[in-house]
Nucleic acid binder design. Structure first.
Length: 641
RNA sequence: GCUGACGUAGCUCAGUCGGUAGAGCACCUGCAUGGUAAGCAGGAGGUCCCGAGUUCAAAUCUCGGCGUCAGCUCCA
């Protein structure tokens, strides 16, 4: 028969398999195939179809199949070593796989080597992975005899008409939907990464299983590359860099709250100032509102009913009060204090004040998940006819802000959750407005059904960092509820009272969190405008100290952040330290420079240096910092020319 | 919150069998006056997370608490 494989027409005998097809197409390392969006196992016979694609490890679906079989190999190895294991679920995940299991032995990382060795044996033994479809009754009998109670529970949960498949490899059998590799042989390079608890069926009230995470590759080289990427992520960990660069610290007595060290405070303020500057251009008005309120406010806003478990509630003078987790109720109050005209709208209140949310202890994570933080928060009150332009403007600001950091981003639209306030019709309208604004902005987006806030649908923006990781940052939430609950009004053209619409939005999200993401994105090497110290003067010997101080003073007078290293150390030592401190520009000054009033400039990460007159360097640095340039040196090259 | 691991000098970590603690870096002092990623020598630095218990004796063993880490759950 004639089959189109990866775009080429190829003649194959009748009853050929996908493996035959891959071979005929000359693909050596085929893992599976894809046809009409479905993944097909290599051992299966070709179905009657238009065209197929051969999947290798380069394809995400191919990788998924590979990792899926890998986790079966791991389960088989664990069973050989710990026969009392009971298996729950074992899927592929983004970069590897995991298996949830119950066993009497508490696994520790020291056990991994033995399991990996057994996995290598299973790969070398190269068992065919055989799929069988069996009846529900046969499946129940099989897994009962094996004592696999979790598998029995899975079978019971399957719909009546579900096809039940099992996969065998050697002595091992597992309930599984597949798809899988044709044999265990390709699972050559494996690394188990961690073991942690995971609830059975993701249910907090059920038993806790042991989840073993691992990753695997067809070749040792691929595994090595992946492991060094993980190492790189570790090197960039903002908690580590935060301490090394003296940006922030945490203390046992204030879990979930950062101490901002002098260096970190500079970066923090630069971010806040940047936001302030951009938003002022768009007509935002900055405000400051109380951070402790009586429950009345939270009752009006609905937080008392829906969010209280996340709020810090304190007692004072026999009265209960609560720290604000969000600014919106305060801004609504502020809006309602005056009679508003249709001419005033949109009104845009921005606030950078402190927010507190009670987060469960196990969820805290450096700056990325804290209890005390600040947002580049704003609430926009607008007329219904301004919704489209209002949302479009926010999307524009997002582009301006993320562009400055060189961050790519992607967008998601989250719709009505199960627990919600208000009428379904209002929700539908709000969701439609957001979708339309995204379409007009030309931003492709994914829909997250049921993931919206309790008061309205939202657009979430995920930034993509230098390592390709995604972080949820900006959020834009349309809200018909708060105006209703706070009875907000404006006088329309006809003199009648009308209800405004509200937009909640933050671009960084939490400034703390965004800063943490930036630390990892830049690996601590901030662009000049964000760098705590933008330049550092290094005298060659102590007789050059006076000139060094003069150079530093001159730069400081221009508003630049400059340090000087006057210690009795050799130049190489000071340079090394300045590089590890990730200072953008080092200025070496010795006899030559002192004599001609120049500085020898060495940019971060470079070996070469160039000598420039003091004033020329100062001006270039000033331009670079003021312009919030992403890369180092553009103005320097200009200055030299 | 749950499961597991961990908590020793400012940082990274070692500490055997239960016998009162160590290294490197950083810091301080002295020598060296130096030209683009670590000069040499010396010194100081400890509530071994906190609290109980076992023991003649606890960094070490047991229990409880706090915190951190990996994950789960949660995340307007």
């Amino acid at each position: 028969m004639q089959v189109r494989i990866d775009g080429k027409e190829i003649e194959l005998p009748a009853h050929a398999s996908y493996a035959d097809a891959a071979r005929a197409a000359g693909v050596q390392d085929a893992l599976a195939a894809r046809s009409g969006g479905e993944i097909r196992e290599l051992a299966r016979p070709l179905a009657d179809e238009g065209g197929i694609e051969v999947l290798t490890f380069a394809d995400p679906d191919g990788r998924m199949v590979f990792h899926h079989t890998s986790t079966h190999v791991m389960a088989q190895a664990v069973r050989r070593i710990y026969p009392d294991v009971r298996l729950a679920i074992g899927p592929a995940d983004a970069d590897g796989f995991f298996y949830d299991m119950e066993l009497s032995h508490q696994l520790v990382p020291e056990d991994f080597a033995a399991i990996e060795a057994e996995m290598a044996k299973i790969a070398a033994e190269n068992y065919p992975v055989v799929r069988e479809v069996i009846s529900r009754q046969a499946a129940i009998e099989l897994f009962s005899s094996l004592g696999e109670t979790y598998k029995l529970e899975i079978i019971q949960r399957l719909p009546e008409d579900a096809q039940i498949s099992i996969y065998r490899q050697g002595e091992f059998v597992d309930l599984c939907r597949g798809p899988h590799l044709a044999s265990t042989g390709p699972v050559q390079a494996v690394k188990l990464l961690s073991v942690a608890g995971a609830y059975w069926a993701g249910d907090e009230s059920r038993s806790m299983l042991q989840r073993v995470y691992g990753t695997s590759f067809p070749s040792a080289a691929g595994l090595e590359a992946h492991l060094s990427m993980l190492e790189e992520a570790k090197r960039r960990d903002h908690r580590r860099l935060g301490r090394e660069l003296e940006l922030f610290t945490f203390h046992d007595v204030a879990p979930g709250f950062a101490f901002w060290q002098p260096n970190g405070t500079i970066v923090y303020h630069e971010l806040e100032e940047f936001s302030r500057e951009v938003q002022a251009r768009y007509g935002y008005q900055e405000v400051m509102t109380p951070w402790i309120f009586r429950p009345d406010l939270w009752q009006t806003s609905g937080h008392w009913g829906h969010y209280k478990q996340n709020m810090f509630v304190v007692e004072s003078e026999d009265e209960v009060v609560a720290l604000k987790p969000m600014n919106c109720p305060g801004h609504c109050l502020m809006y309602s204090e005056t009679v508003r005209s249709y001419r005033d709208l949109p009104i845009k209140f921005a606030e950078y004040g402190p927010l507190s949310r009670f987060e469960r202890s196990g969820t805290l994570h450096g700056l990325l998940r804290v209890r005390g933080f600040h947002q580049d928060d704003a609430h926009i009150f607008l007329r219904e006819d301004q919704i489209g332009s209002g949302i479009a403007e926010v999307l524009e600001i997002i582009g301006v802000i993320y562009g400055t950091f060189g961050l790519q981003y992607r967008v998601e639209l989250s719709t009505r959750p199960e627990e919600f306030l208000g009428e379904i019709e209002l929700w539908n309208r709000a969701e439609a407005e957001l979708g339309a604004a995204l379409d007009r902005a030309g931003l492709p987006y994914r829909v997250n059904e049921g993931d919206g806030a309790f008061y309205g649908p939202k657009v979430d923006v995920h930034v993509i960092d230098a390592l390709g990781r995604n972080w949820q940052c900006a959020t834009v939430q349309l809200d018909f509820q708060f105006p209703l609950r706070f009875d907000l009004e404006y006088r329309d053209q006809d003199g009648k009272a009308k209800r405004p619409v509200m937009v909640h939005r933050a671009i960084f999200g939490s400034i703390e969190r965004f800063l943490g993401i930036l630390v990892e994105h830049f690996a601590g090497a901030f662009p000049t405008w964000l760098a705590p110290q933008q330049t550092r003067v290094l005298p060659v010997a102590d007789r050059h100290a006076a000139y060094a101080q003069q150079v530093a003073a001159g730069l400081r007078a221009l508003g630049l952040r400059v340090g000087s290293d006057l210690r009795d150390e050799k130049l190489g030592y000071k340079i090394r330290q300045a590089q590890t401190d990730k200072v953008p520009y080092l200025l070496v000054v010795g006899d030559r420079e002192a004599a001609e009033g120049s500085v020898s400039v060495r940019a971060r990460g470079e070996q070469a240096s160039r000598t420039l007159p003091q004033a020329v360097f100062a001006q270039a640095l000033q331009h670079e910092a003021r312009g919030r340039a992403l890369a180092l040196g553009a103005h320097l090259v200009e200055a030299e020319a």
